[in-house]
Simulated scan of single mutants.
Amino acid sequence: MKITFVIFTLLLISCSSKEKKDKVDKQWNILTEKTMPTKAKLSFEETQDSLRKQLLKSKSNKNLKSSLLQELYIRDLVNQVDNKILFDLNFNLHGFDCGAPDCYSTNISFEIAAKEPIEFPDKINFELLEQGCGIENKNLTNGLFELVEVSTKYVNYYSKKQQSNLVILGEKKKLYYFPNTEPNAIKVKLLDQLFEQYDDEDPNAIVPYQSITMTTNEYENFLVK
């Protein structure tokens, strides 16, 4: 009886996985039939660019699509609910040598008023949640971000309490959270220089947290919920 139950369970899991794969394949075929010539062999970059364009078309919020939050919107890190824009940013890459998510995460969530065009307020109340391996209990704290820099291409906030910076680079499609930083230590125009001078043997080197959701180049990950 136990053996029969185990076999039945495995079959259910297998069928569920197959159904999910079939759903992904079906969506992929629909996209490719609309955007790709028959028998065309596209490079990885061309394929991902085509997928991104289709994902962008599928999004209905024109305000988010036309802002520096466009990439975060495509990847479901921001969304508008009623008259609020909600941010749910999960940072699970805590070093430059990480190709896969760490076993712990740093999640930052907050909201801003949904204005057209989008306006980033001078101050934002946020929640920071740390959980995963090495953390016995979920660590939830509140903080206040203060606006440091803003343009049509980027925004940079600093938190005195957490001594950290949150940086969103719209044009470059980057999202960073810098822990343990002094006021005015992080400037957008100096980031390239900061990364070029990075030394992994320097214990005082500034290393930002990143999100696998933002660093992945595979847009098919966002086709199925």
Rank of each mutant, 00 (worst) to 15 (best):
126 F>R: 07
168 I>Y: 06
57 K>S: 09
140 L>V: 09
86 L>H: 09
92 N>R: 00
163 Q>V: 06
164 S>R: 09
86 L>Y: 07
45 E>F: 11
131 Q>R: 11
172 K>P: 03
13 I>Y: 15
96 F>P: 03
151 S>K: 02
167 V>K: 05
48 Q>S: 05
29 N>A: 15
209 Y>P: 00
194 L>Q: 11
198 Y>N: 07
136 E>L: 09
170 G>L: 05
66 S>M: 07
62 K>M: 09
150 V>M: 11
1 M>I: 13
25 D>Q: 11
67 S>C: 00
183 P>E: 12
78 V>C: 00
146 E>N: 10
1 M>V: 14
68 L>S: 01
173 K>D: 00
115 K>T: 15
214 M>W: 09
189 K>T: 07
109 S>H: 06
36 M>C: 15
217 N>K: 15
212 I>E: 08
70 Q>P: 04
218 E>L: 15
194 L>F: 01
115 K>A: 08
25 D>P: 02
43 S>Q: 02
126 F>C: 11
27 Q>N: 09
16 S>W: 03
119 E>P: 02
14 S>G: 08
181 T>M: 15
21 K>E: 12
4 T>K: 14
42 L>Q: 08
158 Y>R: 06
179 P>N: 05
213 T>L: 13
215 T>D: 08
181 T>K: 12
20 K>S: 14
140 L>N: 04
166 L>N: 03
40 A>L: 12
208 P>W: 01
187 K>A: 08
39 K>V: 10
185 A>W: 04
18 K>A: 12
33 E>R: 14
221 N>H: 15
49 D>F: 12
182 E>F: 13
11 L>Y: 10
197 Q>H: 11
186 I>G: 05
96 F>S: 00
186 I>C: 04
192 D>A: 14
46 E>W: 06
179 P>V: 03
157 Y>R: 01
7 I>R: 11
126 F>G: 07
168 I>S: 04
113 A>G: 05
219 Y>G: 03
120 F>D: 02
96 F>N: 04
191 L>I: 10
84 K>Y: 13
122 D>Y: 10
48 Q>V: 05
148 V>T: 10
94 H>T: 03
122 D>M: 14
179 P>F: 07
146 E>A: 02
77 L>K: 12
69 L>I: 01
81 V>H: 09
10 L>G: 02
199 D>I: 00
222 F>Q: 00
199 D>N: 05
51 L>T: 09
95 G>H: 05
48 Q>G: 03
28 W>F: 15
63 N>C: 05
11 L>I: 12
54 Q>Y: 15
81 V>D: 09
95 G>Y: 04
182 E>T: 11
194 L>K: 08
3 I>F: 12
182 E>W: 13
208 P>D: 06
45 E>Q: 14
82 D>Q: 08
211 S>N: 04
170 G>M: 07
182 E>C: 11
20 K>I: 11
145 F>C: 02
35 T>Q: 12
224 V>H: 06
123 K>S: 12
205 A>L: 01
53 K>I: 10
95 G>L: 02
19 E>A: 13
144 L>M: 14
4 T>R: 11
167 V>R: 05
54 Q>P: 06
197 Q>R: 12
83 N>S: 15
169 L>I: 00
27 Q>M: 13
122 D>P: 07
154 Y>C: 04
178 F>V: 03
